[in-house]
Nucleic acid binder design. Structure first.
Length: 423
RNA sequence: GGAGAGGUGGCUGAGCUGGUCGAAGGCGCUCGACUCGAAAUCGAGUAGGCUGUGAAAGGCCUCGUGGGUUCGAAUCCCACCCUCUCCGCCA
């Protein structure tokens, strides 16, 4: 959420900054409603002031044994006016909130211009792409060949986009979670195991609601949602809190299952592990001092990259252009891993600085100095990494002619085998 | 799920027979005095949001949340949420 005062006082500046997103936005309705609201507010507050003063007077008169009946009668009328105006104001408030909640964040000045993913800027590449002297198979074929992935039965038991991992596949999934968590915890992130279900306030806090309700699974009859990412519970952990400046930056790593309805993704990535309704992910979350948040974004991105490096997976870092960054983000780096069967790099991590956009929604502040006024923190997060896509990348990049898959060095202590072969 | 108790400012804890209560006292914190310095002691200050303004002053709202009663509610009524204790059930 943007600062309402900023939108009010500099609508042109805000509009101009948002134009970079290539999202068609207008603020006329907002400005009109806002002005109307403030005018009514002055009116109703004058009436309330009158009520308060007169009520006090009534109390005094009664104590003195005087007749206060006329005043009380008069106040009854005043109350009617208050009630009516309050009603209108409440309606305006709702409309204004709705508009404000649906305005995306302003891209940072360092974010490149551009309309869609075509215009994203490659920042760097790492690693050697593997050369195969045999036709490289897609990960689902490798997985089914080794009997470690079972898409058929996932479909039977639940539905499309659900998968069973079996044997060394299941162990690989678990090994990756543990390896990533261990690595990040060692790098200074505090380990968190969050709830996988959150209430709507948390979803609003990080920006999933109200705009993206269709993308989520909601529990029937409850205001509870399955989390689409650990970002939601972990960031909201500090909702409505004022943190001590010394606590910043707060850095968390959290494993969670993630649930996404994938509305509008029908027909895309229908095979394999790339796009599932349920997947695992290790997430990094930071709450940072506003002056340090961009520094922290670079560090967080590097921390995620280190996982790919340790696993020996070729990847590139892309800075998303203004037209492609997410709704809540001010700047985003995507990490894209090389997938031989796709002959392309595919997103495996997304690292963003949300500045105070989420903090304002979730009311997360810090006190810069002992007596100073509390300010909003900057929130950041990034995948470190998406487990399912990491499995895909390992299977494809480490596949051998006989259909087996070499286990990356760093995972061997967790896997207790060097090669995944068909049993 | 059943029975009971409770949710007040950074913390603790009064108020809850409705009327200068945004809220006593204590602790903590900040500033000042005292001191060579510190402790102790003394004095002053110490919630947030909205609105308003050039900036102020001022005004409105907030005692878990949302309604209601009333001229007036932290105090009365209703609903909901959360916490604690006991019982039941359960991985």
């Amino acid at each position: 959420m943007l600062d309402i005062r900023r939108v009010r006082s500099n609508p042109q500046e805000v509009l101009k900054a948002l134009e970079r997103r290539h999202a068609d936005l207008k603020l006329d309705a907002f400005l009109a409603l806002d002005e109307q609201r403030r005018r009514l507010l002055v009116e109703v507050e004058t009436l309330k002031n009158q009520r308060n003063t007169v009520s006090e007077q009534v109390g005094k008169m009664k104590k003195a044994g005087q007749d206060a009946e006329p005043l009380m009668l008069q106040m009854r009328d005043v109350n009617q006016g208050i009630k009516e105006k309050d009603e209108i104001i409440r309606g305006l408030d709702e409309k204004i909130q709705a508009i404000l909640y649906n305005i995306p964040n302003i891209p940072h000045t360092s974010v490149p211009e551009g309309k869609d993913e075509q215009d994203n800027l490659e920042v760097r590449r790492w690693g050697e792409r593997p050369q195969f002297d045999f036709p490289a198979k897609p990960h689902w074929e490798i997985g089914e060949g080794l009997d470690i992935l079972d898409f058929e039965r996932g479909g039977k038991v639940t539905g499309a986009r659900f998968t069973f991992y079996k044997g060394l596949g299941a162990r690989l999934e678990r090994a990756l979670i543990n390896f990533m968590m261990d690595t990040h915890a060692h790098a200074g992130y505090t380990e968190v195991f969050p709830p996988f279900i959150v209430n709507k306030y948390s979803m609003i806090g990080t920006g999933q609601l109200p705009k993206f309700a269709d993308d989520m699974f909601k529990l029937d009859g409850l205001d509870y949602y399955l989390i689409p990412t650990a970002e939601v519970p972990v960031t909201n952990m500090h909702r409505a809190e004022v943190l001590d400046v010394q606590e910043l930056p707060k850095a968390y790593c959290a494993y969670s299952a993630c649930f996404r309805a994938e509305a509008g993704a029908a027909g895309r990535d229908t095979r394999g592990l790339i796009r599932q309704h349920q997947f695992n992910k290790v997430e990094l979350v930071k709450l940072a001092h506003p002056e340090k948040s961009y520094e922290e974004l670079e560090k967080l991105t590097n921390d995620a990259e280190r996982i790919l490096q340790a696993l020996g997976l070729p990847y590139r870092v892309v800075c998303l252009c203004a037209g492609d960054i997410g709704f809540s983000s001010a700047k985003t780096y995507d990490l894209e891993v090389w997938l031989p069967s796709f002959n392309t790099y595919r997103e495996i991590s997304s690292c963003s600085n949300f500045e105070d956009f989420q903090a304002r929604r979730a009311d997360i502040k810090f006190r810069p100095a002992p007596k100073a006024k509390a300010e909003f923190v900057h929130t950041l997060n990034g995948s470190g990494l998406a487990i399912g896509r990491t499995v895909s990348a390992i299977l494809e990049n480490y596949q051998q002619a006989d259909g087996s898959v070499i286990v990356p060095e760093v995972l061997r202590p967790y896997m207790r085998v060097d090669v995944i072969t068909k049993r």
